[in-house]
Design a protein around this nucleic acid. Structure first.
Lengths: 119, 119
DNA sequence: TTTCCATATCGATCATCTACGATGAACGAT
DNA sequence: ATCGTTCATCGTAGATGATCGATATGGAAA
């Protein structure tokens, strides 16, 4: 009975073809991604990153400044976004560059369509 | 500092025009809807309802049978979906008919686009 | 009205989320 | 080596989430 718990182990969402994906897996992946954006702060982060050119530069510090939260809280939200498959983070010296995972928005849209449409 | 907590009081998502909606509000509404589908069981429920004709008939009992959860747990999930604005429920004798809120899928898509695209 | 369904709610338990300040770790510059 | 900057992690507190069995509620049927 019951569903597996979700985040805990970094069950990362990988961007991949969904055509052949079993329905269960679609559900799990969509649920995980939805959890990723289930908080206004995290939506704001995704929004900021989506506005950047694809050569991806958004420094953690900017994000912290843009949000009404303590640095440690923002760091937590960034971690959730990483664990749920929305973003990647890359160290650049002392700073960290975050960017949206390539194609993740389309991927999310497609999961929605698949879930809602099929069967 | 910090964002308001979300669900608690039934801050229902109403389907309405988003063109004139302030960005904050978009964020809040999208976050709430995303929270609604942040669990596989709730995605499955939305999927079942989306597959029904628009004259909306899905009896609670069917949903309970379709999910690997106790009746009380399913009832909880249905409550969350109501509170987050995804579904409506209407009593029909002893049973309850659930259906997707009219236009909610488009609404969700539009919120996504607005958030990701604007500014 | 008594019994039987179908749902909702209650109470308990345990896990997770959100937030913060404090501390740690990595780096660049002095 | 030391210092300041940048970011992650820890520890904590309180709220919320997920799940179940048990119980309440309300309509249907007997």
């Amino acid at each position: 009975m019951a569903y597996d718990r979700m985040v805990q182990k970094p069950a990362r969402t990988e961007v991949e073809s969904i055509d052949a994906m079993p329905l269960d897996e679609c559900r799990e992946k969509l649920a995980l991604l939805a959890k990723g954006i289930s908080h206004p702060a995290r939506i704001e982060i995704v929004r900021m990153l989506a506005g950047k050119p694809p050569d991806c530069q958004c420094i953690c510090g900017e994000i912290v400044k843009a949000l009404p939260l303590a640095q440690s809280s923002v760091s937590q939200h960034l971690k959730v976004l990483k664990e749920t498959g929305w973003i990647t983070g890359e160290s650049m010296g002392a700073s960290v560059l975050y960017c949206l995972k390539e194609g993740i928005l389309d991927y999310y849209r497609q999961l929605m369509e698949r879930i809602i449409t099929i069967n």
